[in-house]
């Protein structure tokens, strides 16, 4: 039978003209059925042989330490070879199926099936490729749009940062002006305070010469020279109160004239530490 011709017709996908006539195709189908039955039989035989092997075949480890493993290995090899020789002598070349026509037919059919599958795969891959190309185009479009958006955003950021810079400068100038005014006012207030305090609460020894604001000079030798003038005392208290608000107390020492301390305490400007009479603090008027 012209199987090679069949193969060609099959390969071209013309499945109707598989064989030369209805009789031939029937023969082939019968042969294939027979072959299938043969294969099933062989499988069953194989299973049976394997179960026999499992039952009767004891496996042994080669490497028992007390004996030479080579002896066991060679014995085993000997047994295997003998078994194989016996098997070959008994069975001959029965293993292969003898109906070549049927075999060829099966191979042809398998080939055709494989071809069909491959064609399907090809079509699928082609469509996938198309899809991917479309997606690529889409993604490229997106990329372009994104780039455009990015450029716009950068522009806006630049504008915004420019604006920010200018507004920053404005605020800085404003704050600077305010700070300056406040500082001037502070100096003015301090000066007023110094004038007032020096005039009305002059340190001992300065009473005679009211022009001497610092209270040092006329009675240097009387022992009052080391005393802190009241405005300095107040300044120390205020600075302490604002710089170290968690511990505003100051230690009284000799330079703090006790009269001043008494005055401030009576007027309620300073208070003593509840546990230590040597410590005083300014009353927190600003809170």
């Amino acid at each position: 039978m012209p199987y090679s011709a069949n193969l060609l017709t099959l390969m071209s996908g013309d499945a109707q003209n598989v064989a030369n006539g209805p009789e031939a195709s029937e023969d082939i189908t019968h042969a294939i059925e027979d072959l299938r039955i043969d294969i099933d039989k062989q499988k069953a035989l194989l299973q049976q042989l394997h179960s026999n092997v499992e039952k009767n075949f004891q496996c042994r480890a080669a490497g028992s330490r007390d004996s030479d493993p080579l002896v066991g290995i060679y014995q085993e090899q000997d047994a295997w070879l003998r078994g194989m020789i016996a098997a070959v002598q008994q069975r001959g070349d029965e293993l292969l199926p003898t109906n070549h026509g049927a075999c060829q037919e099966i191979v042809c059919r398998n080939l055709v099936e494989t071809c069909k599958q491959l064609e399907e795969v090809l079509a699928h891959v082609k469509s996938q490729k198309q899809d991917l190309e479309e997606e690529k185009k889409r993604v490229e479009q997106w990329l372009l749009e994104d780039k455009e958006v990015g450029r716009e955003l950068e522009k806006q950021i630049r504008l915004a940062s420019d604006m920010e810079n200018t507004s920053k400068k404005k605020i800085k100038a404003e704050l600077g002006g305010k700070y300056k005014k406040a500082h001037e006012y502070h100096i003015f207030l301090m000066q007023k305070m110094i004038e007032f305090v020096s005039e009305h609460f002059a340190p001992p020894g300065a009473e005679k010469g009211k022009q001497k604001r610092h209270g040092i000079g006329a009675l240097d030798t009387t022992g009052y020279a080391h005393l802190l003038p009241l405005y300095s005392f107040l300044e120390v208290l205020m600075n302490r109160c604002f710089e170290v608000p968690h511990d505003p107390y100051i230690q009284l020492s000799e330079e703090h004239w006790s009269e001043y301390v008494e005055l401030l305490l009576r007027c309620g400007i300073v208070v003593r530490h509840p546990n230590d009479s040597n410590l005083i603090k300014l009353v927190a008027f600003h809170l």
Partner: peptide
């Protein structure tokens, strides 16, 4: 490991 292998593997 060689101790735990069937003799059949060694040919």
């Amino acid at each position: 490991a060689l101790q735990y292998v069937d003799v059949a593997y060694f040919h």
